[in-house]
Simulated scan of single mutants.
Amino acid sequence: MEQQKLLALLEELHQELEKTETVDVKTGEVLASLKEDIGKLVREESSIEDGQEGLSRNLSEALDHFEEDHPKISMAIQYVLDSLARMGL
């Protein structure tokens, strides 16, 4: 159940990221990295456990980057991080 919820949150985050217009090089790099990681997990190219370490690191970095200018994305990222923590990942 928790993994299904996490996948739903990842899909929601992926949709929010798709709506974000790139305004600078760093934002573009962060978006591209997150989209790739999330895309792999959503399409089940890797399991949550296999992709968790890189995803968690990228999410934490993205949270810091988007916190001020993109509050909806920051909130979605925090939900995903919280879900990973609840799953013990």
Rank of each mutant, 00 (worst) to 15 (best):
G54S: 13
Q78W: 00
L10W: 08
L55E: 06
T20C: 15
A76R: 02
S74N: 06
I77P: 08
S33H: 03
K19C: 14
E2L: 07
L31G: 06
D24K: 04
Q4A: 09
E53G: 11
A85C: 00
Q3P: 02
D64R: 13
Q52N: 14
Q3T: 09
D64M: 13
N58R: 11
Y79H: 13
S74W: 05
L41Q: 06
E11M: 05
L81S: 01
E68D: 10
D50V: 12
L17P: 05
E44M: 07
K5F: 09
V23A: 12
Q15H: 12
M1F: 12
L41A: 09
A76C: 07
E16S: 10
E11V: 09
L89G: 02
E21P: 02
E61F: 07
Q4P: 04
H70A: 10
E36T: 10
L55F: 06
E53H: 10
Q52V: 12
L59M: 12
M1D: 15
E68K: 11
S56M: 05
D82A: 07
Q52G: 09
E61R: 04
A76H: 07
L9R: 05
H70E: 13
D50N: 10
R57G: 00
V30C: 00
T27W: 01
S47T: 12
L84K: 00
D64L: 11
K35A: 01
D69H: 08
D64T: 13
E67V: 04
L81C: 06
I48L: 14
K19D: 11
I48V: 15
E67W: 15
K72T: 13
M1K: 08
M75Q: 13
Q78M: 14
S33V: 10
E2Y: 09
N58V: 00
P71K: 06
D64P: 07
I48E: 08
G51A: 05
E21R: 12
M87W: 03
R43L: 14
A32F: 05
L34F: 09
I38A: 01
G51D: 03
V30F: 04
A62S: 13
A76Q: 02
V42L: 06
T22S: 09
L63V: 05
E67A: 14
H70W: 10
I77W: 04
D82F: 01
Y79N: 08
G28A: 06
T22P: 02
H65V: 10
G39M: 00
V42G: 01
E36I: 12
